[in-house]
Amino acid sequence: MSSVEHVFRVRRLYKLIFRVHRALPPELRIMGDNYARDEFKRHKKCNPEEAKIFLNEWTDYAITLAKQMKPIQQAKKKKVGEYLDPKLLDHMTDEQLVQLYELHKAATEPSTDEQSIPDKK
């Protein structure tokens, strides 16, 4: 693949991810946009082998999320995302594991709206 084709493919995927994120709830959209932006910046100068893996994974992510954001899927399942195969953890670097943990914490901590609502008993 030529350099021009590669750049075009990366830009098209990048824009697609942000377009798909528009269907997410606001707090997930912000987190998803920031994460995608950081990851694409971080991999801007990676080697061709890493670039291929990176683009394949983000393409799979965009396709999966686009399917889940269809109105019919939302009405049926009301779920976003999918579980990570535990076997993949064996192939991650320490830095990736820390990043994954930080992402998990950000995704599971209650939002400020939920914290300010008193419990009704």
Rank of each mutant, 00 (worst) to 15 (best):
Pro86Leu: 00
Asn56Tyr: 06
Val4Phe: 13
Tyr101Met: 15
Leu89Ser: 05
Gln115Asn: 08
Arg19Phe: 09
Glu57Lys: 05
Phe54Cys: 02
Ala107Cys: 09
Ala66Lys: 00
Ile63Gly: 00
Gln115Gly: 02
Phe54Thr: 02
Glu82Tyr: 07
Glu82Thr: 11
Leu24Asn: 04
Asn56Asp: 10
Glu109Pro: 02
Met31Arg: 12
Glu50Cys: 09
Ser111His: 04
Ile72Lys: 12
Asn56Gly: 09
Pro86Trp: 01
Val98Gln: 14
Ala62Arg: 01
Tyr83His: 12
Leu89Cys: 08
Leu100His: 08
Tyr61Ile: 02
Asp119Phe: 15
Val20Lys: 07
His104Thr: 13
His104Asp: 07
Asp113Glu: 10
Leu84Thr: 08
Ile72Trp: 14
Ile117Gly: 04
Gln96Leu: 10
Ile72Ser: 09
Lys44Leu: 05
Phe18Ser: 08
Val98Pro: 05
Trp58Cys: 03
Asp113Pro: 05
Met69Ile: 07
Asp85Trp: 04
Lys67Ser: 05
Pro110His: 01
Met92Ser: 06
Asp33Gln: 11
Asn47Tyr: 15
Ala51Gly: 13
Glu95Ser: 06
Arg37Asn: 10
Arg19Tyr: 08
Gln96Met: 10
Ile72Asn: 11
Lys121Cys: 09
Thr59Leu: 04
Ile53Leu: 15
Pro118Tyr: 00
Asp90Glu: 10
Val7Gln: 11
Leu100Thr: 04
Ser116Ala: 15
Thr59Met: 01
Lys45Ala: 11
Asp38Phe: 07
Asp33Phe: 04
Ser111Phe: 00
Cys46Met: 04
Ala36Lys: 03
Tyr83Asn: 15
Tyr101Ile: 14
Val80Arg: 04
Thr64Ser: 12
Ile117Cys: 06
Val80Lys: 03
Lys120Met: 13
Pro110Lys: 04
His91Gly: 11
Ile53Cys: 15
Asp38Ala: 15
Gln68Pro: 01
Thr64Asp: 09
Ala23Gly: 12
Lys78His: 07
Lys15Leu: 07
Cys46Arg: 03
Leu28Ile: 10
Met1Asn: 13
Glu49Phe: 09
Asp113Cys: 07
Phe8Cys: 03
His104Arg: 15
Leu28Trp: 06
Val20Glu: 01
Glu50Ile: 07
Pro110Cys: 05
Glu109Arg: 11
Glu57Asn: 08
Pro25Val: 06
Pro71Tyr: 02
Lys70Ile: 00
Arg29Gly: 00
Glu95Ala: 12
Thr112Met: 06
Met92Lys: 12
Glu102Phe: 12
Lys78Cys: 06
Arg11Ser: 09
Pro48Gly: 03
Ala51Leu: 14
Asp94Cys: 10
His6Asn: 13
Leu55Cys: 00
